Simulated assay, not measured.
Amino acid sequence: MSPRRHSVTVTEPVGTDPFSCEEYGYGLGRVEGILVLKYRSAAVLEFGESRQDFLHQLYWSPDGMLSTSYGARTQFVGHREAFWAHRAVTHEVRAADRQTVYRICLRETPQVLTGLRAGAVSMAPEAARLIETIARPSCGEAEAFAARARIMAGLGPATSDFVGHHANGTGFALTVARALSHDPGDEAGLAEWAERLHVSVKTLQRDFEREFGMPYSKVRTKLRLSTSRVLLETRPVAEVAHRVGYSSPSAFITAFTREYGCTPGRYAERGYDGEG
C-alpha cells in the first residue's frame, strides 16, 4: 500500500490568516498505522477547543513552545518534548505564529506511555528527526513503518527519560530547563535551584554552559519570551508578563523588544513584519 499524502492550504474564517496542512498517512486503518499532519500558519495555531479525538495524539513543534491544556492543568512544552493525549481525552493545544507543528495520530499506545492520559513526554533527538523524515513526499511506507517503531521507542514520560534522551553533562541543567519550560513563571534563582538539586551553584552554572552554551539567566529569559508569544494573541500584555515571570509589564516589554525587535503589543496586533 502506498502512503496517502497530500498538501492543502485551508483558509480560516474572515479575519484570520491561511495555514498549510500537509498530510502523510501510512497503513491507515491498521493498528500499526500512523498519520502525520504538518501544520504551519502565519497566525496562532489552535488545535480545537476541548477536542476529543478517536485516535491517540502526539503534538510536537521543532521551533517553539506549545501551550497545552488537560483538565484544569495548563502546561508549556518545548521542542525537546511532545504533548501526548490518549484518545477521547479532552485537550487543547496552541502554538505561536509562524511555527511548525506536527500532530501524529496513532491507534496504538507506546508501551512506555501506557496509563498516561495526557501530558508532556520526552522525545529523543532521533525520534524528532524521524517525525520530520516521514512528513515528506519522498518517504516510502516501509521506511515510515521502521521510523514509527523508533519514534515510539524514543518517547518517555519521566524526568529521567528526558535527561537520558538529551543530557550531555550531569543533567542538572536539563532538569531545571524542563521545569521552567512547563512553568516559565517560576521565580526561583540559580541558588535556589542548586539547593533543590543538592548541588553547588558553580556545578549547576557550569552545567548550563555545557548544555546550552549560555548561563541560567539567559536560558530562563529565552524560555519566558518564547512562551509569551503563544499567549499574546489572546491575553493582555500585563497578564502575559506576570504569567511568564516578569515583575512588571515594562520589564517584559523591554526584554521582548530586545529579543524580537518589536513590542509585545505590536506583535499581538500582527503589525510586525519581521522574522521574530
Rank of each mutant, 00 (worst) to 15 (best):
V230T: 11
D63H: 07
Y216D: 01
M1W: 11
H166N: 13
V244N: 04
R266G: 02
G15K: 03
E192I: 09
E192P: 00
A135P: 10
A120C: 08
A42V: 12
R30C: 07
F145P: 00
V36L: 08
P13F: 07
R80I: 01
R87Y: 10
S69G: 09
E187K: 13
Q57T: 10
G271Q: 13
R98N: 12
Q205Y: 11
Q111I: 13
S228N: 05
D186L: 13
A179E: 08
Y59G: 06
R224S: 14
R94F: 00
V176Y: 03
V10G: 00
T263E: 08
S200C: 03
R224P: 02
G189W: 00
L180G: 00
G119M: 07
Y272T: 08
K38Y: 04
Q111M: 12
S67H: 12
G261C: 07
T114K: 11
K218R: 15
A85G: 03
E211I: 05
A238F: 07
Y246W: 10
H166P: 01
Q52D: 10
G29A: 09
M152W: 07
G48N: 10
P110C: 06
T175R: 13
E275M: 05
G276K: 10
T170Y: 10
F208E: 02
A241P: 04
P62Q: 12
R87P: 01
G29N: 05
R117P: 00
E132D: 13
D183Y: 08
S7T: 14
V101Q: 04
G265R: 09
G78E: 10
V240Y: 02
G119L: 05
S226T: 12
E22S: 15
A85D: 04
G274C: 02
Q205V: 03
F145D: 06
A241N: 06
H198T: 13
